[in-house]
Computed example of a mutant assay.
Amino acid sequence: MNAVAIGPLAFSADRLSVITGLIVFMAVGSLLAARVDNRLGTWTTSAALSGIVGARVMHVLTHAESFLQDPWQVLAIWQGGFSSAGGFIGVLLVTVMLWRKAPPAAPWTIMPLAAGLFAWVAATTLTDGSAAPRAPETSHAVLAQGETISIADRKGRPAVLNLWASWCPPCRREMPMMAEMAGSNPQVDFLFANQGEGREAIATYLRQAGVDLETILLDPFADLSRHYGALGLPATLFINPDGTLSASHLGEISREALAERLAALSPQDRTQTE
């Protein structure tokens, strides 16, 4: 999966690209504020904040039904969930205001915008990983049934593979939602692969948490994390019926992001799961 580790922190490639673009945008804006017009510094800050808020608001409105079930999730920005269209509208509004109040300074806004866009594209290109690995042929023991499952051998069904551990707070937060989504999407195999813990520790945690998961794989040596290049937990991988990796998500995943990934199955994949 496309992810980058910086010291103890791990970022998904797309988030790191956006952060890089924002940093360059702010830096160029600050430089122009010192050299050209100090109002450009205020514009840069306002544009960044307006873009972020606009991107989040548009995302929330697009998935209003999901957020109405749990309104507090609107504040869970660490899960991701931003609309590029909303971000563009937010930046545009602040830029129009600058054009009206300070026409001489307005043309200089092109430089920070262009620099930020270039940095975002460059970071996206540099962090774009190699071909995604296919599902591993090795088998993993199942916690409850006393059997083994090979992720590569699932009778042509798509799968969601969640890598988790009981000591991981984001894993614990997302698990009830993941269990609910697994129950409402029987056409997809949801596989919860515990990373590095023993059978007794896993069973104790699930019993205390009151979470009911159908298929829990034991991966005591975190082989799946190494296979897919997951730099942190939780990590959620979306696997096509042929075993190829369709998409991945590093960190806590939201209900709407999970629903979007499930809906993105190709028509051929849907036919195979009916």
Score class of each variant (00 low, 15 high):
residue 39 R to K: 13
residue 1 M to W: 07
residue 228 Y to D: 05
residue 169 P to I: 06
residue 102 A to W: 10
residue 223 D to H: 11
residue 232 G to D: 15
residue 119 A to K: 03
residue 152 A to W: 00
residue 107 P to R: 12
residue 219 D to E: 10
residue 273 T to E: 09
residue 230 A to R: 03
residue 54 G to C: 11
residue 54 G to F: 02
residue 185 N to D: 10
residue 188 V to W: 04
residue 19 I to Q: 05
residue 105 A to H: 03
residue 228 Y to W: 09
residue 134 R to K: 12
residue 28 V to K: 03
residue 170 P to D: 08
residue 99 W to F: 15
residue 168 C to W: 03
residue 173 R to S: 09
residue 20 T to M: 07
residue 261 R to P: 01
residue 174 E to H: 02
residue 30 S to Y: 11
residue 26 M to I: 14
residue 174 E to S: 01
residue 37 D to I: 12
residue 154 R to P: 04
residue 55 A to R: 04
residue 14 D to Y: 09
residue 136 P to E: 02
residue 15 R to F: 11
residue 81 G to F: 00
residue 257 A to K: 06
residue 196 G to L: 00
residue 202 I to V: 15
residue 80 G to E: 08
residue 154 R to W: 08
residue 189 D to R: 14
residue 142 V to A: 13
residue 200 E to W: 07
residue 52 I to M: 13
residue 148 T to Q: 10
residue 39 R to P: 00
residue 134 R to D: 14
residue 64 A to W: 15
residue 207 R to T: 13
residue 265 L to S: 10
residue 112 P to T: 07
residue 166 S to D: 08
residue 179 A to W: 03
residue 151 I to W: 02
residue 198 G to M: 07
residue 108 W to R: 07
residue 133 P to F: 07
residue 217 L to Y: 07
residue 263 A to Y: 09
residue 217 L to H: 06
residue 75 L to H: 05
residue 250 L to R: 03
residue 84 S to M: 14
residue 116 G to A: 02
residue 269 D to C: 01
residue 166 S to G: 03
residue 155 K to G: 11
residue 49 L to V: 15
residue 110 I to A: 11
residue 62 T to F: 12
residue 140 H to M: 13
residue 237 L to I: 02
residue 163 L to N: 01
residue 75 L to C: 05
residue 233 L to I: 10
residue 20 T to E: 00
residue 270 R to H: 08
residue 253 I to P: 02
residue 46 S to P: 06
residue 43 W to A: 03
residue 26 M to F: 12
residue 129 G to M: 11
residue 158 P to C: 08
residue 186 P to E: 08
residue 84 S to C: 07
